[in-house]
Amino acid sequence: MNATTGLFAAVFVLLHVAHLLADYPFQTDHQAAHKAGHGSISRRALAAHAVTHVTVSLVLLMVGEAVLGFHVGAVPAVLAPLWLGLSHAAIDRRWPVTRWMTWARQAGFAAHGGAAHVDQTAHVALGVLPAALLIAALS
């Protein structure tokens, strides 16, 4: 394994844990209930949730640098968490997951709680993975 591969692996794990922390223990009931709605309350709830993702990601990247001894360049250290916040906010509007499940003919899966799984898969595939690749490629 070369240095870039090791950096990618470490960063992917850290950003995935950051995602889980921001999506579950650090997300308030208010954010969860209102982030997909309309109006100023929903925009604030979604923005607060996205900022939580950015913040937790930055903290875990700093912990990774301190404990694991890797270095993330300044540009990727800013761009990756911003990407995580923006992509997370877009997916959490809920309509992308609903449209995907309709297109993929997953009505039965959706009716039995599948949207939460598709949502989390989208966050990892479209948020965490590209952010980790960005950091590995630019650091």
Score class of each variant (00 low, 15 high):
79 L>C: 13
86 L>K: 01
120 Q>D: 12
61 L>S: 01
44 R>H: 09
111 A>I: 08
18 A>C: 10
69 G>E: 03
79 L>P: 11
71 H>R: 14
131 A>Q: 01
90 A>Q: 03
86 L>S: 02
66 A>Q: 09
5 T>Q: 13
129 L>E: 04
137 A>T: 05
91 I>H: 03
103 W>T: 13
75 V>F: 14
130 P>G: 04
85 G>V: 05
58 L>T: 07
99 R>P: 04
8 F>H: 05
57 S>T: 02
109 F>E: 10
61 L>K: 02
67 V>L: 14
119 D>M: 13
27 Q>Y: 03
35 K>M: 10
108 G>D: 09
24 Y>F: 15
122 A>W: 02
124 V>T: 13
11 V>G: 00
40 S>G: 00
24 Y>R: 09
117 H>G: 14
112 H>G: 00
98 T>V: 15
37 G>N: 03
110 A>L: 09
63 V>Y: 06
118 V>L: 05
127 G>D: 02
76 P>E: 08
96 P>G: 06
101 M>N: 04
108 G>I: 12
16 H>S: 08
111 A>Q: 04
109 F>V: 14
21 L>T: 07
136 A>Y: 09
57 S>L: 06
98 T>I: 15
101 M>Q: 08
19 H>K: 05
39 G>D: 10
43 R>G: 01
21 L>H: 01
78 V>N: 02
70 F>T: 04
91 I>D: 03
76 P>D: 08
88 H>E: 01
76 P>Q: 12
73 G>P: 07
90 A>S: 03
36 A>Y: 04
37 G>I: 11
65 E>H: 08
84 L>Y: 02
35 K>Y: 05
88 H>S: 06
16 H>E: 07
80 A>E: 04
53 H>Y: 03
40 S>D: 04
5 T>V: 15
132 A>M: 10
91 I>Q: 03
95 W>D: 00
110 A>N: 01
74 A>Y: 08
4 T>M: 15
102 T>L: 14
105 R>Y: 06
28 T>Y: 02
131 A>P: 00
77 A>P: 03
119 D>K: 11
39 G>W: 14
19 H>R: 07
54 V>N: 00
127 G>T: 07
63 V>F: 09
123 H>M: 12
40 S>F: 13
132 A>C: 08
106 Q>V: 05
89 A>Y: 01
126 L>F: 12
17 V>T: 11
62 M>V: 13
8 F>W: 12
56 V>S: 01
122 A>I: 01
121 T>W: 15
121 T>L: 15
23 D>P: 10
53 H>V: 05
32 A>P: 01
65 E>S: 08
11 V>P: 00
138 L>Q: 12
52 T>N: 07
1 M>T: 12
101 M>D: 05
139 S>G: 10
116 A>F: 05
123 H>W: 12
36 A>L: 03
89 A>C: 02
133 L>G: 01
134 L>S: 04
55 T>N: 03
18 A>S: 13
92 D>T: 07
111 A>V: 06
79 L>Q: 08
14 L>Y: 05
3 A>Q: 10
96 P>I: 13
5 T>C: 13
16 H>D: 03
63 V>I: 15
90 A>N: 00
92 D>W: 13
74 A>R: 12
89 A>R: 01
110 A>I: 06
